[in-house]
Amino acid sequence: MEKLLELDNIHVSFQTYGGEVKAVRGVSFTLEKGESLAIVGESGSGKSVTSKSIMRLLPNKIGSIKQGSIKFQGKDLAKASEREMEKIRGAEISMIFQDPMTSLNPTMTIGKQIMEGLRKHQNMSKSEAKERAVNLLKLVGIPNPELRVDEYPHQFSGGMRQRVVIAIALSCNPKVLIADEPTTALDVTIQAQILDLMRDLQDKTGTAIILITHDLGVVANLAQRVAVMYGGMIVETGTVDEIFYKPKHPYTWGLLASMPKLNAESKELLAIPGTPPDLMNPPKGCPFAARCPYAMEVCLENMPEATDVSSSHKAACWLLDERAPKVEPPEEALVGGAR
């Protein structure tokens, strides 16, 4: 497999009135051609910040990449100029946002918003771009695309708008598509349609997808590999099967346990007690130690190294150290009863 995107030890900080918030603290992962990688974690874990740093769309006065490299086709995006980034955004790497109700310009027709990227990156004439826009709308399943292309966003429903956003993101055949919670703002039936559409389009175009989400159901649907983020770090990565059936990190156990299950005996929803760490003064040791039921003294003092569980599966937890006591994942974290 060919490496398309390689993040190496990325650190991102925000300057706020209260001080420096270290939102991402040493994230590394690779994305291969045509694969889909899910980044999961709760709010504030640094998922969106990581994806915005790849696009270099961090709020430019306060947010910056402090350290690390983002290699995309041999070029380090962390050091690319704004002009170089303009050529990459939309053409090579594009993005889908969470809320389709706000991610389209209300005063510009749908067609013009699709055509913008095409005209910029592919030097299309107005009529060529419009034709392509109509085709794209057809591709994402919008009926009467010839008419709808001249309409405004408020004339589209939420699900339709997300389809339009997907059409815009895919308009220039990007190599990487970053989907930042693409289904979070949609209702469940529409969610399934959008996921189907994304999977279908991935098969057709071979675009690699980075899927940012906190919904493990979406992960199971779309991703091949998963990276679990917590406190600005990746705590566990592996294939979907490894993460769902052989999770090693107590945080991943917590995430899996808090997924509502239909056949559960207790009606109560399980949650991970406590709150995520304050990233203005991040803990010295493992970020999850304060909430972890298995925490040991070493967890509070030292950050665990990422340990290889298998060739594709890594977790950063002291429990994997040979000196640690043997701990089995709790019953609730087991998906489908596999052990």
Partner: peptide, 29 residues
């Protein structure tokens, strides 16, 4: 600060075009 400005930038639209085509017109309302 809206999403559609971020979206426009994620399409690779240059900063000046984002400001004049997306931002100014909506600010005129």
């Amino acid at each position: 600060g809206t999403d559609y400005i971020l979206m426009a930038r994620s399409k690779g639209v240059s900063k000046s075009a984002v400001i004049f085509k997306h931002c100014v017109r909506n600010s005129l309302i």
